[in-house]
Design a protein around this nucleic acid. Structure first.
Length: 648
RNA sequence: GCCGAUGUAGCUCAGUUGGUCAGAGCAGCUGAUUUGUAAUCAGCAGGCCGGGGGUUCGAAUCCCUUCAUCGGCUCCA
């Protein structure tokens, strides 16, 4: 007999070799029906896998990521099974579960193309197979046997994978006639896979290496109930309505022109206004935090980038040098501001008393991004970084780092950004040749970042191998409307440029010392930030107000009625600030019926004096008095909700 | 750059197997209307159907090519 401990700490006895599904059944048949996987001593396992020793067990229902992961993993196998039936001779790469669904990378063979029109056929085959209620079977196998099996099948992809595994750790899963190399875990059978949707088709390099064969990747998602699938598809539809490209077009914020060139955003008047407000908002705060604002040209002599090392690293894949009538003279469009800032630093001598120097610029840079990676405003070829560089003494680095984290947190909070992730990127522990700089400096910098993040209470994930070639970094990531992750803010330690540009300061010992350089951006780029701002705010709540800004953002159609009512309500009020006429104009804007037709985006007042007071007066009812924007926000919100009986 | 898909008036789209198929709604303009409020009525204007080439008596509709966009992969200083 073995002892099984449950999450509530009760312990029950079972025969050794009992499956976790049987354990679940012993609690209640209802539970057994809802469970898709179990964790045995923290390891996620198949429900049918025997438990042979004392263990703690936790059951995973659909709500748990582990359950969905298992469900989708089995669905991926089901997809492969269907493909094998429909495309004899098809070869398989990998087929994992992902955050929302699953995919399988396949090689259908020479001359065979799977296209979107085939998806419904494959989907149908999957459903037919699922209805057969095939059970999954876990098979442990020796490396030699596994290799033999897949070599005979002629599947070079699986063979390659197996050859890299340790003998004794290889398991196969059998589903009907389909046998696949797999670590598991899996559902007991396919009975519960009731709703299946193949979503899209894409090319994906085998093992992520662009020099290797491109596989066909089929994305799909599945659910135990049709209703869940319908809800998911509806959610996707809603999310697409928040796409910044759609909203940007509808509201006339920005545009692209084939004539101007791909990936080169054109800011239309309204978008330019928003962009400028973000810049002003940030600039005001930077001044408060002892930054100096600088400005540098959009091009720089090629020697500048040879000095920085960027030319060697990226020159061939960049916009190519600009020639001049002068023989041998060449300039580059600037792909980053750092080298320019280093030269600004070098323009004057520095004492340790000057440090840290914090130099900021809204610098527009140009990068020749590959064709296929351009994406709305989030990935463009010309963008404006809210860039800054901190030049500091080595022992000031951590403190500066913390100050930057503080600024990021302040900005995100001010703009109501709560859903972001902090990622610490360290260098690869194995391939060190990708990086420059001494081990000692790397260790010091990595330690400083981890400590600084910890002291600022940041919840971080650490990723090895993602560091820049010159130093480790801390990135702030957010998700867009459909869950793609984008990097916004970044803080990077750099020992490279101070060396290459021979930066120095005179220390208290009257000797020359080399400063440490921190790169940082808060928005990342204004373009990307606007995109994410639109997607994260749109659809949440049509009226977004804070003491510093008032933004009425465009919203998904779900909120159209609400938005209309808000605007209709606002039309009943005479809204204007008592301070300046620009705000008066904005009040008029709100009342403007042309504007009231569209759920509108507008921002009022980015600083205190501009936006501190508003006069709100309902027509015919006299003066309601003067209130701060914050009070105004609450007031509007309350009025709208009570008068129009909108549910929050 | 690679795989797959898409590309019709400013916007959203309809155009069956190639032959009155160049359309609709919204936006725009003109004229009525003036009704406490998103879209009243009438009329007008708008596209060489992304560009180029080809097949055909004839192509928005088939083929090739090119550009751009979308979903991914790779990349992201």
């Amino acid at each position: 007999m073995i002892n099984i401990r449950f999450p509530d700490n009760t312990v029950k006895q079972f025969e050794a070799g009992v499956s976790s599904l049987d354990i679940a059944k012993s609690i209640s048949p209802g539970l057994a029906r809802q469970v898709y996987a179990s964790s045995i001593n923290g390891e996620v396992r198949d429900l049918l896998r025997p438990v042979n020793e004392d263990a703690s067990v936790k059951f995973h229902k659909w709500e748990d990521p582990e359950a969905r992961h298992t469900f989708w993993h089995t669905s991926a196998h089901l997809l492969a099974y269907a493909l094998e039936e429909l495309y004899p001779g098809i070869k398989f790469g990998i087929g994992p579960a992902v955050e929302n669904g699953f995919y399988y990378d396949v090689d259908p063979g020479e001359g065979v193309v799977i296209s979107e029109s085939d998806l419904s056929r494959i989907e149908k085959k999957m459903k037919d197979l699922a209805r057969e209620k095939y059970s999954t079977e876990r098979i442990e196998i020796s490396k030699a046997e596994a290799l033999k099996m897949f070599e005979e099948k002629g599947d070079e992809y699986k063979t390659e994978l197996i050859s890299e595994l340790d003998d004794g750790s290889i398991t196969l899963y059998k589903l009907g006639d389909f046998m696949d190399l797999c670590r598991g875990p899996h559902l007991p059978d396919t009975e519960n896979i009731k709703a299946i949707k193949l979503l899209s088709l894409a090319g994906a390099y085998w093992r992520g290496d662009e020099k290797r064969k491109m596989m066909t990747r089929i994305y799909g998602i599945s659910f135990p109930k049709q209703k869940l699938l319908e809800e998911y598809m509806l959610m996707l539809e809603e999310a697409k309505k928040r796409d910044h490209r759609k909203i940007g077009k509808e509201l006339g914020l920005f545009a692209f022109s084939q004539k101007v060139g791909m990936g080169l955003p054109l800011w239309l008047p309204r978008g330019a206004d928003l962009r400028q407000r973000l810049i002003d908002f940030m600039t005001a705060e930077l001044k408060r935090r002892d930054y100096t604002i600088v400005s540098t040209p959009h091009i720089g002599n090629i020697e500048l980038y040879k000095t920085s090392g960027h030319y060697e690293k990226y020159g061939a894949d960049s916009f190519q040098p600009i020639s001049t009538p002068q023989e041998g003279e060449q300039f580059m469009l600037k792909p980053m501001n750092c080298p320019h800032h280093c030269e600004i630093y070098n323009a004057t001598p520095h004492s340790y008393k000057d440090l840290p120097v914090r130099m900021a610029e809204f610098g527009t840079v140009y990068r020749y991004e590959q064709h296929g990676e351009l994406h709305g405003l989030t990935r463009v070829r010309s963008f404006t970084q809210d860039d800054a560089h901190h030049f500091c003494e080595p022992d000031q680095m951590k403190e500066e780092f913390k100050k930057i984290i503080d600024l990021v947190q302040w900005v995100f909070k001010s703009l109501d950004f709560s859903d972001y992730k902090a990622q610490i990127s360290l260098r690869d522990t194995v391939n060190r040749e990708k990086y420059i700089g001494s081990d000692e400096n790397w260790d010091k910098a990595q330690k400083a970042i981890i400590e600084a993040a910890g002291e600022k209470g940041l919840d971080t994930t650490v990723v090895e191998g993602e560091a820049a070639f010159y130093g480790p970094k801390l990135d702030f990531m957010v998700k867009d409307a459909i869950g793609r992750e984008w990097q916004l803010g970044t803080i990077q330690v750099d020992y490279n440029l101070p060396e290459r540009f021979d930066l120095s300061y005179t220390g208290s010992d009257n000797q020359k010392h080399q400063p440490v350089l921190l790169h940082r951006a808060i928005f990342g780029s204004i373009e990307r930030f606007v995109a994410v701002l639109i997607e994260s705010t749109a659809g949440k709540f049509p009226l977004w107000l804070s003491p510093d800004q008032v933004i009425i953002l465009p919203i998904s159609e779900k909120y159209h009625d609400y938005s209309k009512k808000v605007l209709k309500f606002l039309n009943n009020y005479d809204i204007r600030t008592l301070i300046d006429e620009r705000s008066e104009k904005i009040g008029k804007k709100i009342r403007d019926s042309e504007l009231s037709r569209i759920p509108y985006l507008l921002i009022i007042g980015e600083n205190e004096e501009e936006s501190s007071t508003v006069s709100v007066r309902k027509q015919g009812e006299g003066d309601k008095g003067i209130m701060t924007l914050e009070e105004f926000a609450a007031f509007i919100d309350k009025q709208v909700k009570t008068e129009l009986q909108i549910k929050g």
